[in-house]
Amino acid sequence: MTHAGLRFAARRLGLAIPTVFAVVVLSFVLIHAAPGDPVTAIAGDGGDAAYYAETRARFGLDRPIGRQFLSYLGRLLRGDLGRSYLQGRPVRAMIAERLPATLLLTGTALFLSTVIGIALGLFAASRHGRGGDVFVSSIAVLVLATPAFWLGQLTIIWFALRTGWFPVQGMTNARVVNTGWRAAIDVTHHLALPVAVLAAQEVAAVARLLRTGVLTELESAHVLMARAKGLPERRVYLRHALRRPLLPVLAVIGSRLGQILSGTVVIEIVFGWPGVGRLLLSAMQNRDVPVVLGVFLLTATTVIVANLLVDLASARIDPRIALGRNDRR
C-alpha cells in the first residue's frame, strides 16, 4: 500500500473507533436517562423491597452509573453483552440463536439486489430514453418511495392470501417436519416473498445509480475509442462502460447496509420471520434493556465496520480516493 493509502486507512480507522465508542456511550446514556425503573420491568409490579434490592444487586443496578458503564464497557470488550432481564439468559446467545435466520434474509436480499440491480441498470442505460429505460426508471422511482412494510403487506395479500402461491408467515411449514433437500425447498419457499420485498428497494437504488454511471461513461473517450475500434456493443458495455460505475455501487451497498438492516426488522415482523428483528421488537415491548442495547450495538458496529471496509476497498480499487477530499491537507 502506498504512503497515501496507509494514511487514508489510518484516518478511516481513527474515525471508526471513536464512532463505535460514541454509539456505546449514546445508547448507555439514553437507557439510563429513560423514565421508569428497570427493576420493575424485571421483577414486575408490587414485589417486596427485599426482592427488588436483591434483583438490583444481581444485575448490578445498585452501583454508581459510572461504575455500571465501565463494567459494561469491559464486558463488551470481552464480547459479553450481558443477560436478558426477562429470560435471564446471555444476550449474546439469544442474538446468536436468531442471527442465522436474519443473515439468510439479509444476505440473500443483498446478493440478489446487487446482481439484479446491476443488470437492470445496465439494461436501462442501453435503452436510454426508450421504453425499457423509462419503464425501469419509473418503477425504481415508485419502489424507492414505497415503505417496505407496505410492499410486504401488499405481496402477502396478493401472492399469499389471494393466489396461495407463497406461505403467509414464518420460515418453515409448521405442520410438516421436513429434512434434507425438502427442508431447503420449504425454507426457500418461505424466503421468497420477504427477500423479494427487502431486495426491491436495493435493486431500485443500485439500478438508478448504475444507469447514471454507465450513461456518463458511455460519453467518455475510452468508450468512444472502443466503439471506433468496432467492438461489439455487448463488449463495449460489459468491458468498458460497466467497470468504473461499479465502484459507486460498492460504496452505496456499504452505506445502505443500515437501511437494509432497518428494513429487515420491519420485514421480519410483516412476514413472521424468526430473526433478530422480532427479538428486538419483543424486547422493546418488555423494556428488556440489555437485549435492545445488544441489538443496537451489534447493528451500529456492523454498519460502521462495513463502511470502513467499503472505504478501504474503494481506495484500494481507485487510489485517487485516498488522495481525495478526505486527505487534502
Binding site: A22, A33, V265, M284, Q285
Partner: peptide, 24 residues
C-alpha cells in the same frame, strides 16, 4: 466533518426505535 460522519453513520431507525422504546 468528523461529527457529521459520526451522526451520519449511526443507524437512525434503530436509534429512533431505542428512544421510542425507552422514553415512550
Amino acid at each position: 466533518m468528523r461529527v457529521t460522519e459520526v451522526v451520519q453513520i449511526i443507524p437512525r431507525f434503530f436509534l429512533a426505535l431505542l428512544v421510542s422504546a425507552m422514553f415512550g
